[in-house]
């Protein structure tokens, strides 16, 4: 056992990959299960705010792109759950943890999508922030998670471009369309900054995750990276970032910006956001409404298996 743990530490120290059959500390396993599961939950809950606009997408081309995007998210959910299962848990159990509120998902999805421009803003800002968070995860010390992230990030980068393109079209459209785009940025800017989690001074999970090579950069570093990437893009769109304190610092080469109101983040994480109840209720209902279907599929598979056995005998 000791030898196993020694080799775990040696792999981490050499920046190698831990694979499912390798020895690993229980804390490492638990941290990864929690993180991968919550990432998977975020993908499937995230289908709702965007799915909300499939039926109303204003052109057939946009409808097709949005359907494909939401479908991608279901796919991300699937392989993230599969990655979590390599750590010895079951997708069904993880879903139960989500449905009973014992595991969380990204609190960004507790905000409502109120206009078509929100679909653009989610792609541009939310998927943009997700990419900043997830690119370093492609080098995560746990092999299956790192490999899943490579594929997820490729698709997310396509999602981000389509979001930007939606807003670009709106910003070059009618005054009403441009106003819709600005309104979406005004509402999504602060929640997007909160996607990087609490400030470093208050982050509880960070230190150990860094030591284990699960996390590579601090929340504040990633937040800064996101702001630096996004502000020039807002300029291209001709939109105003709703932060009076925003300015470019020539010396550091970074933007100075106002920190989001973290009490709002803690509140939404606790369950007090505009859509927390709605998102979870929708998910639980889909799951419960589907119970008889899953039971039927299992019963049918059982019957088929015993028929095959019967004919073999």
């Amino acid at each position: 056992m000791l030898a196993g743990m020694d080799s775990f530490q040696a792999t981490i120290d050499a920046d190698g990959r831990i694979e499912p059959r390798d020895a690993m500390p229980e804390g490492y396993r638990k941290t990864l299960i929690r993180q991968i599961a919550q990432h998977a939950h975020s993908e499937i809950i995230g289908m709702q705010p965007e799915g909300n606009w499939i039926s109303r997408a204003p052109s057939l081309r946009r409808k097709a792109i949005l359907m494909a995007k939401v479908q991608d998210e279901a796919g991300h959910g699937l392989y993230l759950y599969a990655a979590a299962e390599t750590l010895g848990v079951d997708r069904a159990d993880l879903l139960d943890l989500l449905h009973s509120g014992r595991q969380k998902y990204s609190s960004i999805f507790n905000y409502p999508t109120l206009t078509w421009a929100d679909i653009g803003a989610i792609g541009w800002l939310v998927d943009g922030a997700a990419i900043v968070n997830q690119v370093p995860l492609c080098r995560c010390s746990y092999g299956p998670y790192a490999r899943a992230m490579v594929r997820v990030c490729k698709e997310e980068s396509f999602h981000q471009r389509q979001g930007f393109e939606i807003l670009h079209t709106l910003c070059n459209g009618t005054p009403a369309q441009k106003a819709m785009a600005q309104d979406a940025l005004d509402r999504w800017w602060w929640p997007s900054l909160m996607m990087f989690g609490p400030p470093d001074s208050a982050s509880t999970h960070s230190e150990q995750s860094m030591a284990w090579g699960i996390k590579r950069h601090s929340n504040d570093e990633l937040r800064q990276r996101f702001v630096d990437m996004t502000v020039p893009q807002a300029d291209v769109l001709g939109l105003k970032v709703p932060d009076e304190g925003l300015s470019y610092d020539e010396e550091t080469g970074h933007y100075r910006f106002t920190e989001p109101d973290y009490t709002e983040l803690y509140d939404v994480v606790k369950g007090n956001g505009p859509c927390n109840q709605q998102r979870l209720a929708h998910r639980v209902k889909a799951h419960e409404d589907g119970a008889w279907v899953r039971e039927a599929a299992a019963a049918y598979a059982g019957k088929q298996a015993s028929r095959r056995e019967g004919s073999a005998a």
Binding site: I44, Q71, L78, D289, G290, V293
Partner: peptide
């Protein structure tokens, strides 16, 4: 498309998304 995010299991969200597309 109304089934997307409301299907009995994740695999079916993907399949019905495909069919709708």
């Amino acid at each position: 498309a109304e089934w997307i995010a409301a299907a009995p299991q994740l695999e079916e969200d993907v399949a019905l998304g495909n069919i709708g597309l």
